[in-house]
Design a protein around this nucleic acid. Structure first.
Length: 666
DNA sequence: GTGGATGAG
DNA sequence: CGCTCATCCAC
């Protein structure tokens, strides 16, 4: 993809000397770009958002014309309205009859539903009349979401992509590594070495020819900037990112006929604001030199994480809801009102600084099936009937998740109940010994219901929801050994696990950077996590590179990131984030897949592949036992600790080697 | 670990 | 509005 659209190749970059000015950016900044460092000023993040997604799904499914007004109906309400229909002034809170009146040509398609006693959801023509016996199913949208995500991954180079599924209709892509490689292709001079081998040397400026932004929406520049200023490498980087995303969008449309909007910027927060800026089917670029202007026009409650109570609290504390009016508020005032962590986070975010990382994660962590009862239900028998439907729904989705092949397995089940204003919930483990099927799940769910009923005051019940979760850890018993060890034991652990050397860092031990909410921003840099990072580095055999980064980050070159108005806090923030993120970048798992040699199931990380192969092994043993019973029945139970450990140890030696290829075989 | 709360779409 | 999904926090 990268080479399919040759860029206007330039004459060689002007050498140093003469009257040529230097770039604001250094060779180190360029190197950080290749690592997708969250503090790299050249970083390129994209956010893509499907246009009126549910409505588009129905249009594709039904094959209706692109200019046909269509809305997705759920009982008596509309949950999605396509853009042709929006021209008639329709919004989500109009009734069906009003909508039809305003737009006589409107197609109102009801969502698919589960009907009691049936084994699969379907598009029932009479669904809206059967609210009391049907429950909504959003499965078809989840399936389309999955196809689109796969298409996006196909569109991006396997070894450089970093794609995070943010919701059913949104993704973030960290394009930094790919942009880096394209820059080097187009401007081989950038490959270095830096003059005097000094990474703090500034890069030569890019050619000053005007950049071709194609049809991209460009947001207005900051007041002190003009379009006449020569572009610098951040402009080029984001332009390349924009080209990449334009091609991704074209691929999605060509293959699947879905349109989406996108935002391209230096971080997730700005990219997301960008994708919402112009819809439908457009992309918006927010250059660094436009960030201040772009942001200051916003109501800060539009910023991700400030849409709820926190935003309200800020509004009432400082008597404004605009970014512009919040900018003069000092970091101390923010800390006083909001607490240190949240105050610092808000201070940074309204200045366009967001170091949150794009996690290569495309799999869900929990699933839930729920219904609000109108009217309420009044006895346990009715509740159990709904539990059957919830279980069918969840079970079929578990099958899609590959639970049957032991690719993933939920650890817990949760039942929520609402009666009047009161809510109750009960959770239970799904023990490893239990085979996951509809009967087993229903039994657990029924038990939870029984526990809730025992509390009393449960009828009439207005809402029930059943959830399963705890997917990410796979088979129990393999929880991070590292977290149990004190310093002295690490050597033992390392030698015991020496065949792990060269492995990518397991998914489940990876640092999670929170993206929303109060006071969560700095929590992940705890000493414990830091320790874990180090441990991961040993395991990964990345010592040289890590040490390299440690020494590099010892003196922080801040030419382009800090502006003189930043306070010490802000600088410290940048530096801390830079260091931890570079380490994290080293261990960040890409969407590289690990494939089982037995059944070709694919996994995102070696450890889950290991769990899966342990399961094969245990299954084989079990089959053997059935042929020759009475030898050692206890040893084959999957929840037998010692057995699990020995199986693990045995299978571990067949783990794949680290490498760059897309597929690995175990 | 559990249950509630918050936030987002 | 109804239905999801994710994460954090007090207990």
């Amino acid at each position: 993809m990268s080479s399919s659209q040759p860029f206007q190749a330039s004459s060689p970059l002007s050498a140093s000397g003469g009257r040529q000015k230097k770039s604001r950016f250094t060779y180190r900044h360029l190197a950080q770009l290749a690592l997708s460092s969250v503090s790299c000023p050249l970083r390129v993040i994209a956010h893509a958002d499907l246009d009126a997604f549910y409505a588009q799904c129905e249009m594709v499914r039904l094959g209706v014309a692109e200019d046909q007004p269509l809305a997705v109906q759920q009982w008596q309400g509309l949950i999605a309205i396509n853009y042709p229909a929006r021209k008639f002034g329709l919004n989500r809170h109009v009734t069906i009859t009003e909508a039809k009146k305003q737009c006589p040509n409107l197609i109102c398609q009801h969502v698919a539903t589960w009907k009691e006693g049936e084994s699969k959801w379907a598009y029932h023509p009479d669904a809206e009349k059967n609210i009391s016996t049907h429950k909504v199913s959003l499965d078809s949208y989840r399936l389309e979401s999955r196809r689109i995500l796969a298409c996006i991954k196909e569109s991006l180079p396997a070894n450089m992509q970093r794609v995070e599924k943010a919701s059913v209709d949104e993704v973030f892509c960290d394009l930094s590594a790919q942009v880096h490689s394209i820059l080097l292709e187009r401007f081989p001079e950038l490959a270095g070495p830096a003059p005097y081998d000094d990474p703090t040397e500034n890069l030569p400026l890019p050619p000053s020819t005007a950049l071709d932004w194609k049809a991209d929406a460009l947001v207005d520049l900051d007041p002190q900037e003009t379009e006449d200023d020569d572009p610098d490498w951040d402009d080029y980087a984001i332009l390349v990112g924009s080209e990449i995303i334009r091609q991704v969008r074209a691929d999605i449309f060509e293959k699947l006929k879905y349109t989406c909007s996108a935002g391209i910027a230096q971080n997730k927060m700005l990219a997301k604001l960008g994708s919402a800026h112009k819809k439908p089917n457009q992309q918006t670029v927010i250059r660094n030199r436009a960030v201040q202007r772009f942001l200051s026009d916003f109501t800060f409650t539009k910023i991700r994480g400030l849409g709820g109570k926190l935003g309200e609290q800020i509004t009432s504390s400082f008597n404004t809801d605009t970014v512009k009016d919040l900018l003069p508020v000092s970091i101390e005032q923010l800390k006083n009102k909001l607490g240190d962590d949240t105050g610092t986070w808000v201070y940074q975010i309204i200045r366009g600084n967001d170091h949150s990382e794009v996690n290569s994660r495309t799999q869900i962590k929990s699933m839930l099936s729920a219904k609000s009862f109108r009217p309420s239900i009044n006895d346990a028998e009715q509740a159990r009937r709904w539990l059957r439907i919830f279980v069918s729904d969840i079970y079929s989705r578990l099958v899609e998740e590959g639970v049957l092949e032991n690719k993933r397995r939920p650890k817990t089940m949760n039942l929520h109940h609402r009666s009047g204003g009161q809510t109750k919930s009960r959770q239970a483990p799904i023990s490893l010994g239990r085979k996951i099927d509809e009967a087993g799940l229903f039994e657990i769910a029924t038990n939870l219901l029984g526990q809730i009923i025992l509390e009393g005051k449960v009828w009439p019940c207005a809402n029930l929801s059943l959830a399963v979760g705890g997917f990410e850890d796979g088979v129990a018993g393999n929880m991070g050994i590292a977290s149990f060890l004190v310093k002295g034991d690490e050597a033992k652990a390392l030698s015991a696990r020496d065949s792990d050397a060269g492995e990518a860092r397991p998914e489940k031990r990876r640092r999670v950077v929170p993206t929303t909410g109060i006071g969560r921003f700095f929590k992940t840099d705890s000493a414990e996590e830091q320790h874990d990072e180090d441990f991961g580095a040993h395991l990964s055999g990345g010592i040289d590179t890590l040490a390299d980064i440690e020494s590099k980050t010892a003196k922080v070159d801040d030419t382009a990131t800090s502006d003189s108005s930043h306070e010490d806090e802000a600088t410290k923030f940048d530096q801390q984030a830079a260091i931890s993120s570079e380490k994290s970048a080293l261990h960040q798992q890409r969407t590289t897949e690990f494939m089982c040699s037995r059944c070709s199931a694919a996994f995102e990380c070696p450890e889950t592949l290991q769990n899966h192969q342990d399961w094969h092994f245990a299954t084989d043993l079990e089959a053997e036992e059935r042929k020759q019973p009475a030898s050692k029945p206890s040893a084959i139970l999957p929840n037998n600790k010692s057995s699990a450990a020995s199986i693990k140890k045995k299978a571990r030696h067949s783990q794949p080697e680290k490498g760059q290829s897309k597929l690995k075989f175990g």
